[in-house]
């Protein structure tokens, strides 16, 4: 289950839970798309609980990043485990995605964009 914590009108922290794979990739995509439709430019994805990230999970994030950046915002990933980070490295995505160590650092990115 995805949880949501609003920072302000344009920034929200979400937590996708333990996995991002086939079982919830659609849900994550829809969840973020709904936030973006509401005018939320920055979405912080708190991956502190995330134990498994599949290609489908990565795909759902990539689709959202494109839309966020078009809106002048971003999708910021934080609290990544080594395992999850490694997958992003394998896919050569660390240079493309905005990845922060923790939520505070991610919020600073949002604040800087405001």
């Amino acid at each position: 289950m995805i949880t949501r914590n609003d920072i302000d009108e344009e920034s929200v922290v979400i937590n996708p839970g333990k996995v991002m794979n086939n079982s919830n990739a659609h849900e994550v995509t829809k969840f973020i798309a709904t936030l973006q439709a509401e005018g939320c430019k920055n979405v912080i994805v708190d991956m502190s609980q995330l134990e498994f990230l599949s290609s489908a999970g990565v795909g759902s994030i990539l689709g959202a990043v494109g839309r966020a950046r078009e809106m002048g915002g971003d999708i910021i990933l934080c609290n990544l485990s080594k395992k999850v980070l490694h997958i992003l490295e394998v896919l050569d995505l660390c240079g493309y995605l905005t990845i922060k160590e923790n939520e505070e650092a991610a919020k600073e990115v949002c604040a800087a964009r405001d």
């Binding site: 990739a25 659609h26 995509t29 290609s55 489908a56 990565v58 990539l62 896919l91």
Partner: peptide, 9 residues
């Protein structure tokens, strides 16, 4: 979504 993730698209 899998293809996107797999090929960074």
């Amino acid at each position: 979504m899998t293809m996107c993730g797999q090929f960074s698209v």
